[in-house]
Design a protein around this nucleic acid. Structure first.
Length: 222
DNA sequence: CGCCAGGGCCATA
DNA sequence: TATGGCCATGGC
């Protein structure tokens, strides 16, 4: 799948951000939200010169909330970003200092921050800390359940484990997740399912329904 | 106008 | 453990 996606779409060069802090707050802001809205929110932060952990720390919750309004759920997300900055401050805003922790400890610390769940934590670990941890999102579930590899209801950790059977490569995990998002947006939307998907031939090779066939089958059941 | 977007928390059973 | 309601904005 990775090879086919890479061949189809090319390298994605994720995460699209200038600093690791921008990666982190972007990961929070994109929760159940289109990336375009996140770009708006981040540029608003940039244009007031507040795109740094120290400056975010200085702002009140309401100030931050108002600036990031375009990304949606802005009250919740402003609080989450505040919680995150509080955590970063404990380590003097120094990522190398946090990296002294074991990977599992660091992950637990991130998950302990209110508003940060598994996907957001892993996005931060992979794209900000450059630690080889695979990010599982709803697109991963959709794509791999459409071709019959997943049911889609498996627990996060189980799906992540599956991808961790691949070589533990930060570069591979970064690009694979990015390619999954790219593919979902272009060819694996909720509806309609594209009939000319680049993984159709792989489905036939595996002897399973193509995404298009699976969709048609579901329709005829109704 | 309705659907959807790179989730997570919380109350409930 | 596992659903369901809730959080909010903008693109299409």
């Amino acid at each position: 799948m990775y090879k086919r996606f890479l061949n189809e779409y090319g390298r994605q060069y994720w995460w699209p951000a200038d600093t690791s802090f921008e990666v982190m707050i972007g990961a929070v802001m994109t929760q159940n939200t289109s990336w375009k809205n996140v770009v708006k929110a981040i540029s608003r932060l940039k244009s007031c010169g507040k795109l740094s952990p120290v400056n975010v720390d200085k702002m009140t919750l309401d100030e931050l909330s108002e600036i990031i309004r375009p990304c949606g759920y802005h009250r919740n997300k402003a609080q989450t970003i505040k919680n995150l900055v509080y955590f970063l401050k404990l380590y003097n805003y120094n990522l190398n200092q946090m990296k002294q922790l074991s990977i599992s400890s660091l992950r637990k610390e991130l998950l302990n921050i209110k508003g940060i769940g598994p996907e957001t934590a892993d996005s931060i670990l992979l794209y900000a800390f450059e630690i080889p941890i695979f990010v599982v999102d709803s697109y991963t579930r959709r794509i791999f359940s459409r071709i019959g590899i997943l049911a889609g209801t498996e627990k996060y950790s189980r799906i992540q484990k599956l991808f961790h059977s691949l070589p533990k490569s930060t570069h591979l995990y970064k690009e694979y997740h990015a390619l999954i998002v790219k593919h979902a947006k272009e060819r694996c939307k909720k509806k309609p399912v594209c009939s000319t998907c680049c993984i159709n031939d792989l489905c036939r090779k595996l002897g399973v329904e193509t995404p298009f066939e699976a969709d048609e089958a579901k329709k005829s059941q109704l």
